Amino acid sequence: MKIIKVDLPDHSYNVEIQAGLLNCTGQLVSSVWSERKIALVSDSNVAPLYQSKVADALVRVGFTVHNYQFPAGEESKSLEVLANLTRQMAADGFNRDDGVIALGGGVTGDLAGLLAATYMRGISLIQMPTSLLAQVDSSVGGKTAVDLDTTKNIIGAFYQPDLVIIDPETLTTLTKRDLVEGYGEIVKVGALSDGDLWKLIESIETPEDILKYAPELSMHSVQYKANIVMGDEKEGGLRQLLNFGHTIGHAVEALADGDLRHGEAVSIGMVALTRIFEEKGLSQAGLTQKLTDRLEAVGLPTSSSLLDSPAVFDKIKNDKKNRDGHLNLIYLHQIGGPAIKSIPSSTIREFLDAKENV
């Protein structure tokens, strides 16, 4: 089993990665939590697959488990669903000594994470991600949030779990599209970090390869993110690097109105931004094609007609990462060479439209 420690000033925890870990749920949870009441939160896709199995394992070691379920989909990342889950927990008598386990993909992790962060001003949390996107990205680092209207993750909190349990065997139940979506975040991390992860990425040509190397992909991705988070827990500096591809990606995702998955939008965003910076001479020649090749090898989209919409610039200009009238765009000099360029929000359209060197 691979164990990655996230060691933060106020809260440390392990990320444990190994095939078959869901079978060890009771043992793993009891190693960090005393007996208590647990809200086991899943969506309508994941619950039928794993919720009873996990709940039974927890009950066998002395926990009291309440299974909660919400409709699958990004639209459930809302204040309404958060309020419904809170009402259920209150009705079931949960108190500050109890806990929440997020069993599912990125939506579940974000929603149940915020539920734990806000219920009675914060109760214990464990993340059990079942999608590739959640395993390599959203389950680690403590970001929790819900959406408001078309603005993603605008209401949230930094709230670290007590444990993250990653079982790559859960990936075998994903559709091809759901599996491949998470690979967009892996390519992002590989491009930022270079080294062994990028070498592995260069060998992956099919979705089947993603499944084959899932434990290694998770290990490298989580270790890189853990190192970043330990250096900058609340995105004051270094952690901004993880936003590579997200500024444009979030804008395209919002305009797609559900037709694009998060990882697909990040894939489009990485390529679009890299092409702009390469045209300006700030990124290495050929870098856009290098990224495009690795993403398209497994079927990820790398372009969208939505990029031509004027509304993209409004979304980017109003991005929640806007600070003091500036947006920090994350780009690459080359693979393994990330950099930050601060652009006044008022001129972001001119910058992204311009082709001349700056």
Score class of each variant (00 low, 15 high):
4 I>S: 04
12 S>P: 12
14 N>G: 05
14 N>P: 11
14 N>V: 03
15 V>I: 14
16 E>W: 13
17 I>G: 13
22 L>G: 06
24 C>M: 11
27 Q>S: 15
38 I>F: 01
38 I>L: 09
41 V>C: 03
42 S>Q: 00
47 A>F: 03
48 P>F: 00
48 P>D: 02
56 D>E: 15
59 V>F: 01
61 V>I: 12
61 V>S: 05
62 G>A: 09
65 V>R: 03
66 H>Q: 15
67 N>C: 15
68 Y>A: 09
77 K>H: 06
80 E>W: 11
87 R>S: 15
89 M>S: 01
101 I>C: 01
111 L>T: 07
115 L>G: 08
116 A>P: 02
118 T>A: 15
133 L>Y: 00
135 Q>W: 05
139 S>Y: 02
140 V>W: 10
151 T>D: 13
154 I>E: 14
157 A>M: 07
158 F>E: 04
168 P>A: 04
170 T>L: 00
172 T>Y: 13
172 T>S: 12
180 V>F: 08
191 A>H: 05
193 S>G: 08
196 D>A: 15
202 E>D: 15
210 I>V: 14
216 E>D: 15
217 L>C: 03
218 S>H: 08
218 S>A: 12
219 M>R: 15
222 V>L: 10
222 V>C: 08
223 Q>E: 13
224 Y>D: 00
226 A>T: 09
231 G>M: 05
239 R>S: 06
242 L>Y: 02
245 G>V: 10
246 H>C: 04
247 T>S: 09
251 A>P: 05
251 A>L: 09
254 A>D: 03
258 G>H: 04
260 L>H: 04
268 I>V: 08
272 A>W: 08
278 E>A: 05
280 K>V: 13
286 G>Q: 09
287 L>W: 11
288 T>R: 02
289 Q>H: 02
290 K>M: 01
290 K>T: 08
295 L>W: 13
303 S>K: 07
305 S>Y: 12
311 A>W: 09
313 F>M: 08
314 D>S: 13
328 N>D: 13
333 H>G: 07
334 Q>N: 12
350 E>N: 11
353 D>P: 05
355 K>M: 00
357 N>A: 14
